[in-house]
Amino acid sequence: MFVDYYETLEISPNANSETIERIFRYFAMRYHPDNRETGNESRFSEIVEAHNTLRDPVKRAQYDILYREHLGLRHELTDGARDGGGLERDAAIQANLLSLLYVRRRRDVNNAGIGDDELERLSGCPREHLEFHLWYLKAKGFIGRTENGTFAITVEGIDHAGSKQARDRPDATRLLDHAD
């Protein structure tokens, strides 16, 4: 796991060596385990680790490469969170997976599973993305693993797929309104 040493020391990535030393001394005194009022051994260890890396020019240069990569990943995650279409796409993929598994269950109730490779092919979703959706649907109880290791829709999954489909079809709602 990546640790942001700049955040640990509460300094800018552009901080010079004097600033790093000054801030380190301040935090070291504050969090040193011998300090009865504010001592914190865990926080002290984090500060020492950050200081030892950032004070050495070679270690800092190596760390800064990792830092920039991590910063790029954070920007990707932030951009992905801002993209409102991401949730809608995920919901569509999950609905598609449930539909595929529903049809399979309807065709053969005793052999209702679909394997990972076939799900990838049928859904058009790459394996690395499919893993998230399968995890989610499994955690919600909508799908499960069969005895032979394939995925199959559960009763909860069928109920969920049916209720979602009814809500998404305005004509179905109108039919229900006229049935009374």
Rank of each mutant, 00 (worst) to 15 (best):
M1P: 10
F2L: 00
V3Y: 07
Y5D: 13
E7T: 09
L9T: 11
E10G: 14
I11V: 15
S12L: 13
S12T: 10
S12D: 05
A15L: 15
A15P: 14
N16L: 06
S17G: 06
E18F: 02
T19D: 13
I20E: 12
E21P: 01
F24C: 12
R25V: 07
R25I: 03
Y26G: 02
F27Y: 11
Y31S: 00
N35D: 13
R36T: 07
E37A: 14
E37Y: 08
N40K: 05
R43A: 03
E46C: 12
A50Y: 11
A50L: 02
H51W: 13
H51Y: 15
H51P: 04
L54I: 00
L54C: 04
R55H: 11
K59T: 06
A61T: 09
Q62T: 10
D64Q: 11
D64T: 05
Y67Q: 06
R68L: 08
L71M: 05
L71D: 05
G72D: 15
G72N: 13
L77D: 13
T78H: 01
G84C: 15
R89K: 12
N96P: 04
S99G: 15
S99V: 10
L101G: 01
R105C: 09
R105F: 11
R105S: 02
R105Q: 15
R106L: 14
R106N: 12
R107Y: 05
D108Y: 02
V109K: 15
N110T: 08
N111I: 00
A112H: 01
G113E: 09
D116Y: 10
D117I: 03
E118W: 01
E118F: 00
R121G: 04
L122Y: 07
S123D: 12
S123K: 12
S123M: 08
C125H: 06
P126K: 11
H129D: 08
L130C: 02
E131V: 06
F132A: 09
H133N: 06
L134D: 05
L134P: 04
L137M: 00
L137A: 02
L137E: 09
K138D: 04
A139K: 10
A139R: 10
I143N: 01
I143A: 01
T146S: 14
T146G: 03
N148Q: 07
T150L: 01
A152K: 07
I153T: 01
V155H: 09
V155D: 10
E156T: 00
G157D: 06
I158S: 12
A161H: 12
G162F: 10
K164R: 13
K164W: 07
R167F: 03
P170Q: 10
P170L: 05
P170N: 12
P170I: 09
D171V: 13
H178Q: 03
D180T: 00
D180Y: 08
